[in-house]
């Protein structure tokens, strides 16, 4: 990597002016263990609606692990253990009374590799509304599917072949299908785990555009390997290193005026 600074986010960002307000999700002193191994050490972070928060950092720094703690996807790994507190609208998501199923309906997730179900495009989108009983009747379900696909910018491309298999789409279309699937259940937070790392630059640009459009309605958290992407799509950036949160602040500050030496070294390409 070159020594030059990564170009800063295209300023001025309109979202910079959106007041942060009450955090949608609040994490306090969160540590995550895999068996004996500690992956995350005492991370505290706030996530806000109408903002895109980017988690950056070198491989293995724990950013994906932390992301998966936000909707308790780590529960699927038997050895994983989470300490500390994570709240959604002030409610502890690790409290014993919390219904994981409800939580994940409110905190949706998009994965690194597009993972459409081997079903039709329609059934992929209708999956969430069906299991949560959101739609009453076929017409309402049709409307949800159409709305979700429109919002994900996929409607024009697939409206004539909703019965085709979702796995037959191109990689970028599959990822937009997965985003449409996630927003079909009307979540409040969308977690994206390196959503563009399996895509080509054109598909990546489309997804980034989509993220920017969706920002207005959701709190979006995106884990990314690409600092340029973080600069382009996010308003707030968190830099993770070796399981700790080094720095968290507005994206333009992180990229132009980092407080920590490690952050500066990383974004200037000294390591990572």
């Amino acid at each position: 990597m070159s020594e030059t600074l990564v170009p800063p986010a295209p300023a001025p960002l309109s979202a910079e002016e959106v007041p942060l307000g009450e955090p949608k999700m609040r994490a306090r002193d969160v540590s995550v263990y895999y068996g004996e191994k500690q992956a995350i050490n005492s991370v505290s972070i706030d996530v806000h609606t109408e903002h895109v928060s980017a988690f950056i950092g070198p491989s293995g720094c724990g950013k994906s692990t932390f992301l998966r703690a936000l909707n308790r996807m780590n529960d699927t790994i038997p050895s994983a253990r989470v300490q500390g507190q994570i709240e959604l609208d002030g409610e502890d998501i690790y409290a014993s009374g919390m219904d994981v199923v409800q939580l994940r309906a409110r905190v949706g997730m998009v994965f690194q590799k597009p993972n459409p179900f081997p079903k039709s495009i329609y059934d992929n989108i209708a999956y969430g509304p069906r299991i949560h009983g959101i739609a009453e009747g076929k017409n309402e379900l049709d409307a949800i599917v159409e709305r979700s696909l429109i919002r994900a910018g996929l409607w024009e491309e697939v409206k004539d072949r909703l019965t085709d298999s979702g796995t037959a789409l191109s990689g970028g279309q599959q990822q937009r299908l997965c985003i449409a699937r996630a927003i079909a259940v009307d979540p409040e937070v969308i977690l994206m785990d390196e959503p563009c790392s399996a895509l080509d630059p054109i598909a990546t640009a489309k997804i980034e555009e989509l993220i920017d459009e969706l920002r207005g309605s959701y709190a979006i958290v995106i884990v990314t390997h690409s600092m340029q992407q973080a600069a382009r799509v996010s308003q707030r950036t968190a830099f993770f290193h070796l399981g700790t949160l080094v720095e968290y602040g507005s994206t333009s500050d992180i990229f132009t005026n980092p407080r920590e030496v490690r952050t500066k070294d990383y974004i200037t390409g000294r390591y990572g």
């Binding site: 699927t76 939580l103 994940r104 949706g108 999956y127 299991i131 996630a182």
Partner: peptide, 18 residues
């Protein structure tokens, strides 16, 4: 079946049985 498939479903808020 790739784990990603199950993850995708669980992340939608489906139960394990679903």
């Amino acid at each position: 079946v790739p784990q990603a498939m199950a993850d995708g479903s669980l992340a939608m808020g489906a139960t394990q049985n679903e």
